[in-house]
């Protein structure tokens, strides 16, 4: 396969970025430090070059990301690549919410879902770019590129505006905000092929290396710092692993892999038999888990 489809996808994403910026007052880009965020950032720079990014990046932090993610985020921000806002939900901070004691659902809701709503309201952002792709999950397949949220940040999947041709209706009602997804038509494989083609930096955790992990409920959880208590009988093992997706480290399963280059990752993916979000523990509560979370305001 040649790569003219990457060029088409890139042009479409840049088009979406520019259109959204032209039609909004206070845009922001959500930055999660994962591979999709890295691609999104690269596309945004291309879209507005030679100008600087016309919006800041917002990281809704949970305090439980991998150390390597914080390292890369802070280094890029120091290098002046972008204006960075880090937001931590003060209530989650006060209550000391964590995935170990409070479970994945509570942790995700307070830090991420509520944290995002608070951050958007606090800074009065009226439009937020996100790196979600339609191929990720069933309910995402029906989401528009310009997706509207009510004042409570809820999503109403049955009342979405039709999107025709390349014409995006970005007019919002009072209180509404918009989520814009420039990577809507990209697949996981497209993302990796583009990272290779454009030589985009991603967090090293995506590449295989020997790392300390414990086996827990069938998942390989990396022991990234001292906050992860070991259950009875659990032993830290050194395994050669990598991550297909990155979230909070106690909630993100690694896969055993030898793929330590982009070529090897792409080859591995072309022969993969599990889906990308399979390592995400938060997706597993019942068939409509993601749809429900999104209706409540999860990105």
């Amino acid at each position: 396969m040649s790569f003219s489809h990457l060029r088409r996808l890139e042009a479409e994403s840049i088009d979406i970025f520019r259109e959204a910026v032209a039609e909004s007052e206070r845009p922001v880009m959500l930055y999660s430090i994962g591979k999709d965020s890295s691609v999104l950032l690269h596309l945004a720079r291309k879209a507005f070059h030679p100008a600087r990014l016309p919006f800041p990046l917002l990281h809704v932090d949970t305090t439980w990301k991998f150390r390597a993610m914080y390292e890369m985020r802070d280094r890029l921000a120091r290098e002046g690549c972008f204006e960075l806002i880090v937001f931590r939900n003060p209530e989650a901070e006060r209550l000391g919410i964590n995935p170990i004691e409070h479970g994945s659902a509570r942790h995700t809701d307070l830090w991420k879902t509520q944290g995002l709503k608070l951050a958007l309201d606090h800074y009065r952002f009226d439009l937020a770019f996100g790196g979600a792709r339609r191929d990720e999950e069933k309910s995402r397949a029906k989401e528009r590129v310009f997706s509207f949220r009510n004042a409570q940040h809820g999503w109403d999947p049955k009342n979405q505006r039709p999107e025709l041709w390349r014409l995006y209706n970005a007019r919002k009602n009072p209180g509404e905000s918009i989520r814009v997804f420039p990577l809507s038509n990209w697949t996981e494989l497209d993302v990796w092929q583009y990272i290779r083609a454009e030589n985009i930096e991603v967090v090293p955790l995506y590449f295989a290396a020997t790392r300390p992990v414990v086996e827990r409920d069938g998942a390989l959880i990396m022991v990234d710092d001292a906050r992860l208590p070991l259950h009875k009988g659990e032993q830290v093992q050194q395994r050669r692993v990598r991550f297909r997706t990155l979230g909070c480290y106690p909630l993100t399963g690694a896969i055993e892999s030898d793929a330590d280059t982009l070529d090897a990752i792409i080859t591995e993916m072309e022969h993969a038999h599990t889906s990308e979000r399979q390592g995400r523990i938060i997706d597993r509560d019942g068939g409509s888990s993601m749809e429900r979370k999104k209706a409540e305001g999860y990105f």
């Binding site: 309910s139 038509n185 749809e291």
Partner: peptide
């Protein structure tokens, strides 16, 4: 993709695959 559709056995909207 959407749970209401699964229950009613119909597709409601445009979905992209």
């Amino acid at each position: 993709g959407l749970s209401a559709e699964r229950e009613q056995g119909i597709t409601i909207d445009v979905a992209y695959r």
